[in-house]
Design a protein around this nucleic acid. Sequence first.
RNA 1: GACCCCAUCGUCUAGAGGUUAGGACACCACCCUUUCAAGGUGGAGACACGGGUUCGAUCCCCGUUGGGGUCGCCA
Length: 484
Amino acid sequence: MTAVTRFAPSPTGLLHIGGARTALFNWLFARRYGGRFLLRIEDTDRRRSTEEAVAAILDGLAWLGLDPDEPPSYQFERRARHAEVANAMLEAGAAYRCYAGPKELEAMRTAATSRGERFRYDGLWRDRDPAEAPVGAAFAIRLKAPRAGETIIHDLVQGDVCVANTELDDMVLLRADGTPTYMLSVVVDDHDMGVTHVIRGDDHLNNAFRQALVFEAMDWPLPAFAHIPLIHGPDGAKLSKRHGALGVAAYREMGLLPEAVCNYLLRLGWSHGDAEIISTEEAITWFGLEAVGRSPARFDREKLESVNAHYLRAVDDDRLLALLEPFLARPPDEAGRARLRAGLPALRPRAKTLVEFAELAAFYAASRPVVPDAKAARLLDAKGARALLARYATALEDTAWAEAALEAATRAFATSEDIGLGRVAQPARAALTGRTASPGLFEVLAALGREEALGRLRDAADSLPTGPRRHIVPSGASERTKAR
RNA sequence: GACCCCAUCGUCUAGAGGUUAGGACACCACCCUUUCAAGGUGGAGACACGGGUUCGAUCCCCGUUGGGGUCGCCA
């Protein structure tokens, strides 16, 4: 089988998470069956389509690595072809001219609503003698839909879905201004592009019936349909602005990795046994529409971040460093970058996102003097802490600068001071990182390097108490000054 | 409201007539421990309800309830 799939977004907003998943499934399906994945920008709504939205879609797909196999096509450019098909249908008697104006349609709609019915065009001009048409008036071309029987879609995900043709109305194919509607354009384009599998959101399932009618009217082969369940927000309703329907760019800014986003999205509505972390290669060999679930899934940010944490550990150092820099408050200097690189391994299991990672890594990138946060300051201001750090720095001076040796030296120092390891580790951590929580002390010391580490220790030993009320105290009295 | 779709732990899901109903995220406890993580061990936690079919239903059928989607000369 040679599959041709397509992703067909309308450029009226961001590439949101649902669209991204639709694109992913289409991309995967094409890869799986050695076919082609196409991108079609459905920009026939001229008022709402924007250049920025097109750019956002292209950028988003590129970031996710879901590149189309051919340059994107733009639906509006094919309007002449669409009109041609509409006219062919008119010729064939599969469509007719409708002269009903907006006011008449509105009346129909309100009448239907008041009767508690679903609005359907009532076929006013369907069988009317064209001779009665107002001369020179604008007309729309409507599909002459069957009025009896039923239409069945053999959906690859939803199964056979059947609807009575009385539910379907004579939809507009070509507007009064001569532009094609979505319903027409989609069918013509899917046919002309040779699309074999239409994989899209469940919200299009109802459209599939109408589109099937057009395929039928033109005697074109029907593509296979696969309507995948929508992604819902935490409250169970379709993901929308309400939940902050974010573009994929927002996920990048949250510090998420594209491979993590793809992995998470893949598992939303599709599964392969107990597999959770799935590489792209595995996804391509495993993916299939038969394993796509039928029920909608809720978006869970925590799980996404957990998947991201997993991928964060696997990113190689160079890429991670590059990824991290935009998230750092200020770009590190050469030495800072080297410290950061050395500190990477111990940081990896501690961050779920690049934002968190950058936050945790800041102390490596920053240069002296380290400014302690409130809790760290309290530790440093504790009685005897600064003097202890001074002695500790001295004790480390001749130590070989490697984790094991540093640990041995530190333990020996604690023993000589007759205190527990924590009593020296905690203030040292505060001096070294400015925080009370950090990677292990010895990892930090090693990554910082001898000069920087001893410098930071002595900076803290030499500085004055940093409590909220900073008074200048006579030297020697500092130990009695309580930080409160 | 009409039409269509859906229904297993809080969430994502495995399961395709017989299972102690499995895994993941989150949660709780313990272990490890210089802090925070990570890791390890353990725990709590689900088949919406009612009828069928069957020797036997999470699984098949019907209904109920609940949730969702669609009802444009938007896409």
